[in-house]
Design a protein around this nucleic acid. Sequence first.
DNA 1: TTTGAAGATGACAAAATTTATCCTCTTTGG
DNA 2: CCAAAGAGGATAAATTTTGTCATCTTCAAA
Lengths: 148, 148
Amino acid sequence: MLQLTMTGEYAMRAMLHIASLPPRTVVPIAEISRAWEVPETFLRKIVGKLARGGLLKTVRGNGGGVALARLSREITLLDVVQAAEGPLALNACLTSPGACHRTPWCPVHPVWCEAQEKLREVLSSRSLEDLAKDASPANRPGVQRAAV
Amino acid sequence: MLQLTMTGEYAMRAMLHIASLPPRTVVPIAEISRAWEVPETFLRKIVGKLARGGLLKTVRGNGGGVALARLSREITLLDVVQAAEGPLALNACLTSPGACHRTPWCPVHPVWCEAQEKLREVLSSRSLEDLAKDASPANRPGVQRAAV
DNA sequence: TTTGAAGATGACAAAATTTATCCTCTTTGG
DNA sequence: CCAAAGAGGATAAATTTTGTCATCTTCAAA
């Protein structure tokens, strides 16, 4: 359907949560699950992918949890999406060279190439640091406060 | 998986086929199926969508088939993809205003908006006329010809 | 050293979507 | 009338997505 799946969406929420905490904070998966409406057992699977993708490091045992494996400034949205969903490929013909035998003469192929390139540019133009800044608690509607 | 489905891919092939024939040509679905390796019964369903989307007109009965409903110059790749796959929405939060309650403060939302806008630009920048020109038989490897 | 919190992992299962297929009906030119 | 061709509904196979569960390992603190 040409749409991000819940896996990718949940991955972004988790990464955003972690990135908005002080650097190096280790946070339990259960906390992220609660804060962002993500099923905990499913989130564990996704965290596994993010860890194997080198975006998160995990800490086992009591007091454990997950933390960013790199500075939030050095992780882009594209990194998150690709770690969760696999390499970006807007069309099957872009999954690997030679995936489609029509590629050498297909007039549509270059258009998909260009579209994908544009998408990559946008998704890699923002780091988690940029996003976490915009998502600082001050910008969120928390508990209703009395008017001043 | 953030990827075009076969439905959209087959739709493009069909539209491209029709657009590379002389204007107003009525071509049977079976011919498109044969030429582009698309299962015929499935293609019939897709043609239905393209017709309901106003991109094709169909002609029933003996000698019938399908033809472009508009000039190939006035049909873009975006039109084809949307007629086949539904409205473009790179993320669930873009399907309708208010689809996600986080949208008002979500820092990622604007990024997806921008990405989708870029994608729309690229896909709507080429008409079927442009593409059919590039796909003219001369550019395709047909039957092997003797070297001159 | 026991205990309990927390992540790792593989098997399994439910649900949704995609990708078809089949059958019957209608239309239409010859 | 008849054969070609699209329309449309019901159904089904295949795949992917979205989970769940049980068991195991790790680790800090009491």
